[in-house]
């Protein structure tokens, strides 16, 4: 498989937009691609092999080199801090990371609790704000935490804000804008340089730029 590219795709929210983008870049993904329950799909004519992973796991597959490239949200990149190249902002699945809480709830000043899927990101954000909080790690339905009294606030991604609203939560702080990124394994970046450069160029040409700067990128190590 030395002349094949293995691509880690995130299942769920980003998947359809990512597939669309690859099709726009003339990669021949068959129509049944989206409906398949297979975890590995090979596309002979493009010499590409797609693996369908949990979004949070995409950078892990790429870091270990079992996938050459992958598509991952910036939220996942910040949380996981994997050693991979982040080569292109695909500008799809835009949303933002936010702090939210129950509407009208009073701020607790003693040991406030924050529930989140992103414990690293949340801890660093509040440290930068100079606020001491306790982080509680949840795997999903984060909105539940303040409603039922597990936490005072949450840190989560917000796209339309509907889920928050329907559950009586309001956004308190916007942490940063999140888009999906094309990521590359450092060894593959050298050993398969031509194939990867071509893919990057083809994607670059179809990425929708809404004008200039999409805001400052945020490095957690600073």
């Amino acid at each position: 498989m030395a002349d094949w590219l293995t691509v880690a795709m995130p299942k769920g929210r980003i998947f359809h937009e990512a597939v669309e983008l690859l099709r726009k870049a003339d990669y021949p993904l068959p129509p049944e691609f989206e409906d398949s329950r297979k975890l590995i799909i090979e596309i002979e004519e493009a010499k590409m092999r797609f693996i369908l992973a949990k979004p949070m796991d995409v950078p892990t597959y790429v870091e270990h080199g079992v996938a050459d490239i992958g598509i991952a949200g910036k939220d996942v990149m910040l949380e996981e801090e994997r050693v991979v190249y982040e080569v292109l902002d695909l500008n799809i699945s835009e949303c933002h990371l936010a702090v939210a809480g129950l509407a009208g709830a009073e701020r607790k000043s003693f040991a406030p609790k924050i529930a989140t899927k992103y414990p690293n990101v949340a801890a660093k954000y509040f440290r930068e704000q100079g606020e001491q909080v306790e982080i509680i790690h949840l795997n999903g339905s984060i909105e539940l935490a303040p409603m039922i009294g597990l936490a005072d606030r949450i840190v989560d991604i917000v796209s339309t804000g509907r889920t928050l609203k329907e559950n009586g939560l309001v956004e308190l702080e916007n942490i940063m804008t999140i888009t999906s990124r094309l990521i590359v394994n450092p060894a593959s970046y050298r050993m398969k340089a031509e194939m990867i450069d071509e893919l990057v160029e083809r994607l670059k040409n179809v990425v929708a730029w809404k004008g200039e700067a999409t805001g400052e990128d945020f490095s957690l190590n600073r």
Binding site: V84, Y85, E86, P186, A213, E216, D217, S219, R222
Partner: peptide, 14 residues
């Protein structure tokens, strides 16, 4: 630092 972190997107944005 962006180069060190292999973050080209951040590099270009800056």
């Amino acid at each position: 630092r962006y180069l060190y972190e292999k973050n080209y997107v951040g590099y270009l944005q800056l």
